[in-house]
Structure formats: C-alpha cells, structure tokens
Design a protein around this nucleic acid. Structure first.
Lengths: 249, 249
DNA sequence: CGCGTTTTTGAAGCCCCTCAAGTGTAGTGG
DNA sequence: CCACTACACTTGAGGGGCTTCAAAAACGCG
C-alpha cells in the first residue's frame, strides 16, 4: 500500500484487495480525475439529500454523523484517504446521515452513471465495492462494541489503535506518528463522550507514556500496550497485511 | 407485507422492495426449502468461522454479537423473520462476529454456491441483497447513535419503537402486541446497559402507560409518545410503507 | 412440588457529565 | 510587534445516571 507507483490511494487500496490490470487502473484513475479541494468542516451530503454521486476521499479526514434533536452529535464513521461513501447511492434513494469533512480534504466525485458504468464493465469493481462496504460494516460494529461496552480509557485507546493501523495501511504513518487533526469535541462525538472527558483520558494515556495527541499529530509510543488496554484486535479491518499474517504466520 | 399469499417471509420482504415474477418467487422459495428448527440461544456462526452458507431467519428472533475479554457482550444486530446474514459469505472469508438465535427459530440455509447461482441468474436478487445489506447498515448506525448519545430511557424506547415497527412490517404485530421474548440481560447487551437498569427503565415506561413487556410480549400503548421520547424516526428502516408515505403522502 | 433462572427492588459507589474558570494558540488588524 | 478575538484545551468542583452488589420475589419447567 505504500507503493507510490499507483496514481492514487483508491487505486492502491482496491489493488490490495484484488490485483488490477493496467486497463482497470487507468479506468479508476480517470474516474477520479475531477477532484476538488474542500475546506474543513463542510457538509458533503446531508441527511435527506437524494443520493447522487460517489465521493472518494483522496486526502484528509472526513466523517459521517447524525444530529439529535437535543443538538448532540454522533459520528458513526471516520473516512481516511481511499475511503468512499459506498453504495448508498446505488441502491437507496435518500441519505440516512450527513457526510462532512473533518480536515481540509481532496475529494473526487464520481457521478452515479459513471459508477454504474464501471461496475457493469468490470466485475472486479463490483466486488471491490461490496468488499469495501462490508469492511465498513465491520468497523461500524467494532465502534458499536466500543461505545456500548468499554469505559472511556478503553474507548479512546481503541479508536487510536484503529486510526493508527488504518492510517498505516494507507501510508500515512511515518516515524510512529500520524497526522490526526481532530478536536476533542470531534473525538467525543465519535466515542460517545464529552470533550472534557476526552481531554482527561488523553492526559492519562499521555502520562502513561503510551501515546500523545498534540498539534494535530498522533505520536504512538506503545501500540501493543494500548491495544492490550483497549482489547483491540485489528482483524475486523480486513487489511491485506493482517490477512496475510493470519494465513502465513 | 401482510399478504399471506407469499410462500415465506423472505419472498414477501424482497417482493416489497422489488416486485418478483412468478419464476423468481419460485426460485427463492425453493432455495429456502431446506429449513430447520433451531432452539433458543444457539450459535449459528461463530467469530472466526470460515464463511459458508447464507442463513435466513424464517421464524423467531436471532442476533449478532461480539464478546469482550472481560466477558461482557455487545449485541450489534437483532434479526427478525425475513432477515439474513447478508453478503459476508460472498466477499469476506472470515466471520467478524457471532450469529446466534435468541428464541427458537426456523432457519433456512442456502449454500454459497446456490446464492451465487441465484445472484448470477437474476439481477433482482443481486440488487435485493445489496439493498438488505444497506438497510442493515443504516440500522446499525441508528443503534450506534442510540448507544452513544441517548440516555437509558430514550435508548429502551428507541429500541422498542424499532422492533415494533419492524415487527409490524413483517406481519408480527396483532392487536398492538408483538411477541418479543428477550430477557433484560439480552436487551441490556443490545443497548449498552445492565439488566438491572433495563428493568428499572421498563418499569418507568410501564408506569407511564406507554408500553409493557411481559411474558415475552410487547404491548404498545402509545407508540407516538414513545417515539417522541426516543427521537425515533423510522425512515432509516427504509420500509416500503414509509417510503410510500414519503413520496405520496 | 422443587429447582434454576429471571425479574424486581434497595443501597452504595463510581464513572462520566455539567458547569465554570483559566490557560494556551492561531488568526486579524491596528 | 502587540492588542484583540475566537476557539480549543486544560483543570477543578460538584452532581447525577448507571453500575455493582445483594437478596427477595416471581416465573417457568422438569
């Protein structure tokens, strides 16, 4: 995945799931060519919008969230480069939640017709979309377990492990650090906690020498210990490296 | 959906999404003919199992859950008649969680090859599977919001609303009551609460005259009030009646 | 009936929230 | 370069919601 020969991170990600031919790489790359820069904290698709294009995050962090009547927010998903808003657009007619940027992003927009064309022309694209969709669902389940059954320290630790491992899988980790420009409020909205409490937990983890989140970068000092605290097992991410480890050693 | 002319609830459910021809109804019906009775509290597919057949719940309640190292459990999904374990089996090679019965169930088992055959032969089956998968994902998100950002009363109320509406959509509601034979511990595992607290919340809702859960049946006295308390908006269930209301009513 | 499980209720405690104030930090304009 | 502003981070004090522990009552089933 850290192979820089791929034109973009989406191509690299799909290729790691199912090897693509030169033709397929080119098709996918050209589908992404109309990408634009989006500032942080912008809604890309709102709840209730009619489903239209497929959005692919090429750079930056995005999320999906739902607002509650009380004004509180729950983030249900964090999108990293290579992630996309999946097949809602292909099957369901209305968005169930809102998709928004968290940091400045580079976003490719692939019109619905173009997606249908790609999926119809090459079976590997259909399978890749299904695969991404299912991996996504497993991540959602892991979040559900996190919020439902873990205390605040475990929750934060688990999310940090996940984001670190996912970031690493798309080449965003260098020197044990990952660019992660999320506010405490945003982390709280993803974890079912308040910003204040997230702050306290981060201090605890920092003082324990396990990790540090400062100035928009996550420095990971002891992934093993953090994973142990959180009960983190990354197999739900279905990363090719993980599955290789599972199969061959 | 309460049309009794369909051979089974799966056929009825898929037909409500996309009208099926007589041939397609027959194909689907025969795929389900090898169904078996499974007692309550039996694992159907365990975490780490290789993915094999597609399970369809024809009668009873089932769930998916994950166990934590501490011995606690989080239920991520409750399956009603017509629900199935979706496409994990088609794309991912290993189960991420465990699927189990909650009550005695009638379960159809469709071998992977048979599913692939059906999907390849009729485009409507492929679309139906995708559709069911996406509806499921929206339910998962709604649960995540529930557990992450609502208090115990809202949480219980929301789940009761969801199960009542879903049950109604597959013809399980009669005279404002739904067979719902779940223990407080099981409800707690779905809601991120303890059984003790679920009990207290149920009493509160009972004393308020909103609903009652006794002897394995849910009696719904005031769905509107309950939905209002919970902030329940059933559009995430993508039920045909709801979408009809949205479009024409 | 007798036994195991579930439900119910009480008491005590802790985890996380709320409220509040103080401390950075980045961006803007004088 | 420094005020000024806005926002995020930090820390403290207090409260409440849910948990834990415990035990009695009710239920289901042989």
């Amino acid at each position: 995945m850290d192979d820089v020969s791929f034109p973009n991170v989406l191509v690299a990600k799909i290729n790691s799931f199912a090897p693509l031919s030169a033709v397929e790489i080119d098709l996918l790359d050209r589908a992404c060519e109309h990408a634009r820069e989006v500032p942080a904290h912008q809604d890309l698709l709102r709840e209730g919008d009619e489903t239209g294009s497929l959005f692919v995050i090429l750079r930056g962090l995005a999320c999906r969230y739902k607002m509650l009547p009380e004004g509180t927010r729950q983030i249900t998903e964090i999108l990293m480069p290579g992630d996309c808003c999946h097949m809602h657009i292909m099957v369901l007619d209305v968005m169930d939640d809102t998709m928004a940027t968290l940091t400045p992003c580079r976003v490719a927009t692939i019109p619905r017709a173009r997606v249908e064309e790609l999926v119809a022309s090459r079976a590997v694209f259909a399978r890749s979309l299904s695969w991404a969709q299912l991996v996504n669902q497993d991540i959602l389940k892991a979040w559900m377990v996190n919020v439902g059954r873990r205390n605040s320290v475990q929750r934060v630790a688990h999310l940090m492990c996940e984001l670190y491992v996912r970031g690493n899988s798309v080449g965003l980790v260098a020197d044990r650090s990952l660019s992660l420009d999320l506010s405490h409020a945003e982390l709280g909205d993803a974890l079912g906690l308040t910003a204040v409490h997230v702050c306290r937990v981060l201090r605890k983890l920092r003082l324990a020498g396990l990790m540090q989140l400062r100035a928009g970068t996550l420095m990971m000092y002891d992934l093993g210990a953090l994973a142990s605290i959180a009960g983190f097992d990354g197999s739900y991410l279905h990363l090719p490296s993980a599955s290789r480890q599972r199969r061959y050693g």
